[in-house]
Design a protein around this nucleic acid. Structure first.
Lengths: 199, 199
DNA sequence: ATATTATGAACGATCGTTCGTTCATATATC
DNA sequence: GATATATGAACGAACGATCGTTCATAATAT
């Protein structure tokens, strides 16, 4: 045991430390209210060194958005698997709602969305993330319709978008204390009814 | 016709000018990227004069949020009137979707929401606005249920929140070009199905 | 004359970024 | 093994710009 440190798959690169610190800062103060110095200081590194690892402040946010994209991958696979469309949908709704309502995801998502409106680089990242989810969810809806478990959708992609909107919007309201985090069954009843076969 | 403009009620014309200019700036560049100087300059007034009408930058945003609240009042009355709950709901969904999708409302709403997370003054304003809509919509849902036009809701307020989330979320996606502005019938079909009486 | 409205210079703070430098380690040459 | 060279992580002062805000003062209206 001389110089060897604990090393998982990515040992402990500076980049990782910077990212994690930046997330903390953005979460606490917001993107624009956080200075590059804040990140460097909280990370225990020098200001200049941060610029050795990232080309600038926006690059840090872009990297965070990229990581968020990876995390969404899990939900895409969740949507693909399963013989019972309705059960799969329910599982997805509950899991994704839980994920989206976690403060770090809700706040950061909002921060990234805000930035995406004007920064094209962030926007493409953001749209890419979501398009993947929408595609997977839309496919699930169509399969469910064919199997007779869901009603017919004139525009499955748009409907998928609406489902995600409801989940993500609720997550934000939970954050603002406008919604009780407990009312998760209401969410599923809502989406269930919205996708149910007509009488 | 000397100095009279087309404005009967607004208190101070200067205030109005500042607000309108600020809205333009916030829309173009975002709240934090807009400087107080930008607003004053674009409004054609001096920097110091702006501070004669507003106590600071945040006060300007707060005033904008207050005005947004007034605009929502129209939708509250829309929700209250009408003997046919389903027709009222449809009317509301379509009108509110059109309103929310207008860039100035969608972007400003996002900007205000972002700010609300950390600024308590803005947060209370924001929550107040929304609570009014939720209350009106929830009441409509309950009435519709009693009249047999809607299904039963275990939590009408939460359901009302989800409906608003879907509408507002879609509005944002239209802005990010992730959704076609045309697919408005899909939105209504979605909400209609979500509130319909069960088979 | 008094009160209101308007002005823009000035303030201290902070912004994101650049830069020259140090220094420990890895590689190459002898 | 010893020496020379190359590498790049780490540092923090410094830069020019801009931030929100204040204030002494001038113009205008009552």
């Amino acid at each position: 045991m001389i110089g060897k440190k604990t090393a998982p798959s990515p040992p402990h690169p500076r980049k990782q430390l910077i990212i994690e610190t930046a997330v903390t800062c953005f979460l606490e103060a917001g993107y624009h209210q956080t200075g590059v110095r804040d990140i460097a200081h909280r990370a225990g590194i020098s200001l200049g060194n941060l610029y050795n690892h990232f080309s600038g402040k926006e690059a840090v946010l872009a990297e965070i958005a990229r990581i968020e994209a990876q995390e969404l991958e899990a939900f895409r696979t969740l949507l693909a698997a399963g013989p019972d469309p309705k059960a799969t949908l329910k599982r997805f709704v509950e899991d994704y709602a839980e994920y989206a309502a976690r403060p770090e995801n809700a706040v950061l998502g909002l921060e990234i969305l805000s930035e995406a409106i004007r920064a094209p680089q962030i926007a493409s990242l953001f749209s890419g993330n979501r398009a993947g989810l929408v595609t997977g969810l839309a496919k699930l809806l169509e399969e469910g319709t064919r199997a007779g478990h869901f009603r017919a959708f004139e525009d499955p992609r748009e409907t998928a978008g609406l489902i995600l909107d409801a989940i993500e919007g609720r997550a934000l309201r939970v954050l603002l204390k406008d919604a009780k985090g407990s009312a998760k069954t209401t969410l599923w009843r809502f989406i269930d009814a919205a996708t149910q076969v007509k009488p």
